[in-house]
Computed example of a mutant assay.
Amino acid sequence: MAVDMDTEDWLGCPTPLEMYQHQCSLLVDELAETERMLRRARANIAGLVQMNDLLATGKASAEAALRQALERISAMDDDAPDNVSFRPIDLVTGQRDHLFRENQRLLMELKVLRGPQP
């Protein structure tokens, strides 16, 4: 059974020109969407570059402050006598030991002044 029908006349079937035009409009829409995404990506990249510059500047200033602090600490260590420490716990323990020795000395003087106890 050989049916030779031309389907171009059927209602609702697009012509080849209409199919090409539709395909072109789809491609144009896709290209516009791609361009919009590209603009947004470029704006994001520009923002990231600016943030990176700010972070690099902050890092450089923090490193400079750290170098200065380390230099000051090393200068303090070089200028300080050997028995002096700048650590807070060492200062507190040194004060505690000094007060303990002073307390023991005063107790001994008090015992000497009171004399022997019967």
Rank of each mutant, 00 (worst) to 15 (best):
M1K: 03
M5P: 04
L11H: 13
G12V: 03
C13L: 09
T15I: 02
P16F: 00
E18T: 01
E18C: 01
M19F: 00
Q21H: 09
H22T: 02
H22Q: 07
H22C: 04
Q23Y: 00
Q23H: 02
Q23K: 04
L27C: 08
V28H: 11
D29Y: 05
E30I: 07
L31F: 14
E33M: 10
T34I: 11
T34W: 12
T34A: 14
E35I: 06
R36I: 07
R36W: 05
M37L: 11
L38F: 08
R39W: 09
R39P: 01
R40F: 08
A41K: 10
A41G: 05
A41T: 07
N44Q: 13
A46I: 05
G47R: 14
L48D: 11
L48Q: 13
V49Y: 10
V49G: 03
L54S: 14
L55D: 07
L55V: 06
L55R: 10
T57M: 03
T57L: 06
G58E: 02
G58V: 02
G58C: 06
K59F: 00
K59E: 00
A60I: 06
A60L: 08
S61E: 05
E63R: 11
A64Q: 03
A64D: 03
L66H: 08
Q68D: 13
A69K: 05
E71G: 00
E71I: 00
R72A: 12
S74V: 02
M76L: 09
M76R: 00
D78F: 00
D78R: 00
D78W: 01
D78H: 00
D79C: 01
D82N: 02
D82P: 05
N83H: 09
V84R: 03
V84E: 04
F86P: 01
F86Y: 10
R87S: 04
P88S: 07
P88L: 09
I89T: 09
D90I: 04
Q95D: 08
R96D: 11
R96C: 15
R96I: 15
D97E: 11
L99A: 14
L99Y: 14
F100T: 11
R101Y: 07
N103F: 10
Q104R: 14
L106H: 10
M108R: 15
E109L: 15
K111E: 02
K111R: 15
L113W: 01
R114Q: 13
G115P: 04
P116I: 07
Q117H: 06
P118Q: 08
P118I: 06
